[in-house]
């Protein structure tokens, strides 16, 4: 099932299939390891629900929902 990262529930895991957006923002996401094929685990959301904290390529990354909206994933593991 395809889903955008900002629609993920805490504890869900997915594999990136596509990164949308353009220009510098997209480059930045690539540089931080947010590339197709990478596995993403949604660790938590900030107290007000935004930004998100994810584990990707073995480290913690934080990004806003608006940026997470650009990342499309294939859901692999459901929230426990």
């Amino acid at each position: 099932m395809l889903k955008k990262l900002d629609e993920f529930k805490i504890g869900e895991t997915g594999r990136i299939t596509k990164v949308e957006g353009e220009g510098r923002l997209r480059r930045r996401l690539f540089d931080m390891g947010v590339t197709p094929g990478a596995t993403v685990y949604l660790r938590k959301k900030a107290p007000l629900g935004d930004p998100l904290e994810v584990t990707i390529r073995g480290y913690e990354l934080t990004l806003r929902k608006s940026e997470a909206n650009l990342v499309i994933l294939e859901v692999e593991g459901e929230a426990k």
Binding site: R28, E53, Y59, R64
Partner: peptide, 9 residues
């Protein structure tokens, strides 16, 4: 500005 940041241990 976008907020894409590493959270250190």
């Amino acid at each position: 500005a976008p907020f894409i940041m590493e959270l250190p241990q």
